[in-house]
Every structure is written in structure tokens, then in C-alpha cells.
Simulated scan of single mutants.
Amino acid sequence: MKMIRRLLTSAAALALLAGAAQSRELIFGSWLSATNATNTVAMEPYFAALKEATGGEIDWKMVPGAQLANGPGTPDAVKSNLIDGGITMAPYVPKMLPSMNMIFSQSLIGDDMLAATAAMNDVLMLGCPQCREEFEHANAVGFGGYSVSPYLLMCRGTPQGLADVKGLKVRASGGGVGIMTLAGATPVAMPPNEATTAIERGALDCVLGSVQWLRSFGYMDVVDTVLDAPLGMGGPPVLMYVNRDVWEEFTPEQRRLHIDLMVDVVVRETFDAQMAEDADVIAAAKEKGITFVDAAADFAPVMAERDTQQYAENVANAKAARVENPEAVLDYYLASYAKWQKIIAEEVGQDREKFRAALKREIFDKVDPEAL
């Protein structure tokens, strides 16, 4: 009997060791700060949910603050498996991801952030086979994206409108480059986390970006004026840009879980990391003395002109970058945006749960993890 108990005890110990051996710690290198809401509100709960759903077999660990790779360096870091995953912005690596860069460069006009977010996820995961080919060539898999609220101009000094922007040096990316060029400003390519020092030293006059960057990138201390005019929504930043070898080592069930749980990431990112943060940051900025100037009417002609020219320009740039049939991707994207504007207006409104249900039904349930 004692021998049997010893054997059973040994077998149980071996089983525990085998289970432990199957667990895997994966490194997610984020170039966003440790306190950035995308990290804390959207991604960290996602990693906790994945760990719980897989019984601890998948354990993503966040390393924030560009400790392992900055924004432009993330795709190469993922490709070489320096990190297992990270957040990727195509405009930082346009030669590596020209199709995604084309999508990012097509500014969505207006301020319907929910429709923009949905359209970006739709085209990323269902409407851009060229993007999947580029990811594969870069030894990666990409899924889950988000949109920020319409970009605004955040400046040092006291510009009051379009006339005052002419000649200013503005950090811009994607479709914002064309918008700033039309406005008479000088676009400057620069990761947003590097722009704080550049503004402080006078190397930059303004940043074109999300208003919550005032907090997340420290612009609150160097910006005096925000020109409150919606200057396009661009994206998506890819929330999960994962090394392809790592992805293929997951079981089919684990890959499916990564997709199924991503819908909640997109909802949290949209409502909590973007919309709620925007309102909080605006209140804090006004309390600090930053002036918000209503410049929407001033910039409306610029946005209208940009919208008439950007499609042809983006298609031409994509073809020059050897993207095949770029028109099909942009047509899909714009049709999706129009579709989602209708869904938001007629079904969702600003209701969080209705938005989640629509995203799941129209996009995430249709994503085949094995085809990514």
C-alpha cells in the first residue's frame, strides 16, 4: 500500500511538473509609458484574462516605457523575437508595412470615433490580405486596433487659427502629414514620446495628435494652446503585433482565445482609454491654464480639400511601394466606415454593450485565427 501511495505521489508530482513546463511567459514590449491608459486599462486586463482562460499556460508580461524597443523599433524587435509582441504603428515603418501605412494615411473625416474604430478593425483583420502578407513577411501576426478621437493641434505659444499655423513645425504622421502641408505648416516625423523635449527646446512648435497625449507624453508642461478643430482620425495602431513563430506555437484554442478576448480590449480602449481619458485630460489642461481655441470653422476648408485629394495620393504612394490593388483595400475601408456610421447612428449610439455586441457580430466572430 505504501509503495502504491509513493507511486501515486510521484505521478502527481510529475503531472504538476509537466503542467508547469507547458506554461509560457511571453514578453510584451510597449513603447507607451507605464501609466498610459492603453497599457493599464486595455492591455493588462487582456493579459490577465488570457492567463486565466488558458489555466496559466499563456502568461504575457508587460514591459512598458520603451525599455526593450521604441515605436519604430518594435516591428524589428518582434521579427527577431527580442520581444514576443508589442504595439505597432505602420507610419514608423512604412517600407515594412506599406499597406497598413496606406490605411493609416487615409484620414477619416468627421468625429465619429466609434465608427472609425470599427472600420479600422474591420479592414485590419478582414479587408486587407495585403496587410496579412506584409505581416507574414515580417515574421509577425497583427490583430486588434483602435482609433483615437480626431487629432488636434497642441502648440506652444498662442496661435489662434489657420493663419497662425503657417510656417510652424508640427509633429505629424500618416494622413496628418498631408493635412499639415495643406495648412502651410512644416510636418516633422518624430515619435510622440520624443516631441516633448523638442517642443520645450523650440525644435517643434506643435504636435498633431490625440488630446490625451497632453498627459501621456508630458505635453501638459510644454503646451500653451490647443486648437480645437477635428483634423482627421487615422489608424489603426495594431494592439497585438506578435512574433509569428510564437503565434504558431499556440494551440488553435489559444489562438482563438486571443481573438475572442480582443473585442473587450477594443471596447475598453475606446470607452476607457480614449473617450473617458480625453474628457479627464481636457478638464485637467484647462485647470492648468492651457487655452482651447475653437478653430473648427477655420480648418474646415483644409479638411474638405484634403478629403478630395487623399484617396488618389494614397493609392499612388502605395503603388510606388509595390502594394498590389491598393484601391480594393481603401474602398473596403471607406465602405466599412460608412456602414459603421449607420450602425452607430441606428443601433449603438454611445452604448458600450451595444458597441461590443456589434463588433463581435460584424467583425470578431468572422476572424479566422488560422488565416492570420
Rank of each mutant, 00 (worst) to 15 (best):
G85W: 01
G86Y: 04
I87D: 01
T88D: 13
T88A: 14
M89G: 09
M89L: 15
A90V: 12
P91R: 02
P91E: 09
P91L: 00
Y92C: 07
Y92D: 15
Y92K: 11
Y92Q: 14
P94G: 13
P94A: 13
K95H: 13
M96R: 15
M96C: 10
L97I: 10
L97K: 02
P98N: 08
P98K: 03
P98F: 03
S99Y: 07
S99P: 10
M100Y: 13
N101C: 11
N101W: 09
M102C: 13
F104G: 09
F104N: 15
S105T: 15
S105E: 11
S105W: 06
S105G: 14
Q106M: 15
Q106S: 13
S107R: 12
S107W: 06
I109M: 14
G110K: 08
D111N: 13
D112S: 14
D112L: 02
D112G: 12
D112V: 10
L114R: 15
L114P: 09
L114H: 13
A115V: 09
A115E: 09
A115M: 10
A115T: 10
A116D: 05
A116Y: 06
T117E: 00
T117W: 05
A118V: 08
A119F: 01
A119C: 05
D122Q: 13
V123P: 01
L124V: 02
M125I: 07
M125A: 08
M125Y: 04
G127D: 01
G127K: 04
C128P: 00
C128E: 01
P129R: 08
P129N: 02
P129G: 06
P129Q: 06
Q130P: 06
Q130H: 04
C131S: 07
R132T: 15
E134D: 12
E134F: 05
F135P: 02
H137F: 09
A138M: 14
A138P: 03
A138W: 12
A138H: 13
A138R: 11
A140T: 07
G142S: 01
G142Q: 02
F143S: 00
F143E: 05
G144T: 04
G144F: 00
G144L: 00
G144Y: 03
Y146G: 15
Y146E: 09
S149Q: 14
S149T: 15
P150K: 03
P150A: 03
L152G: 03
L152K: 07
L153N: 08
M154F: 05
M154G: 00
M154V: 07
C155T: 08
G157K: 12
T158Q: 14
P159I: 09
Q160N: 09
G161L: 06
G161V: 04
G161A: 07
G161W: 04
G161Q: 02
L162M: 08
L162H: 00
A163R: 09
D164N: 07
D164T: 08
V165S: 00
V165I: 15
V165P: 07
K166S: 14
K166Y: 07
K166L: 08
G167E: 08
G167Q: 08
